[in-house]
């Protein structure tokens, strides 16, 4: 009896934590502080935790099917994988941003040089004219 009560408690905690995570993500999207594409993996993770919390046998079944003796360790692996995926996704995004940022800096600097050149020429023409 004591055993099942503990399980129930951790289920509730997991569900509440996931709901808080999902609520935080949705709130960030609504405030335009997070773009949808970067929230999908996290949202998926939150929903997965809720599903496993509600339907405990699912975890056991999947773990058994792929040959993991201790079902909770499958949860760790999945979480780790999701974490690595998010990390990889962010690294790609940062690389993209860096490349775009470099391009912008180069273009702006070239434009600045061109403007200065035109100003100098205009000034010289003015001096020559008057």
């Amino acid at each position: 009896m004591e055993y099942s009560v503990n399980i129930f408690r951790i289920q509730v905690i997991a569900i509440v934590a996931s709901l808080i995570l999902i609520a935080a993500i949705v709130s960030l999207i609504r405030k335009h502080r997070l773009r949808e594409e970067y929230s999908l993996l996290l949202l998926g993770g939150g929903v997965a935790v809720i599903i496993f919390s509600v339907w405990r046998q699912l975890l056991d079944k999947i773990a058994h099917a792929i040959g993991i003796a201790y079902p909770p360790s499958m949860l760790f692996i999945v979480m780790l994988l999701v974490g690595v995926l998010i990390f990889l996704h962010l690294s790609v995004t940062v690389s993209e941003l860096k490349e775009q940022n470099k391009r912008l800096t180069q273009e702006v600097s070239l434009l600045k040089q061109r403007i200065e050149q035109h100003l100098k020429q205009a000034l010289l023409q003015q001096e020559a004219g008057g």
Partner: peptide, 25 residues
Amino acid sequence: ATVITFPYNLGIGGAVQTGFLYAAQ
């Protein structure tokens, strides 16, 4: 000389590439 100034340190590759951009343009 013709001078192109970056607002921050972009790194040697970005600097040289800007020279090539200027040359191409």
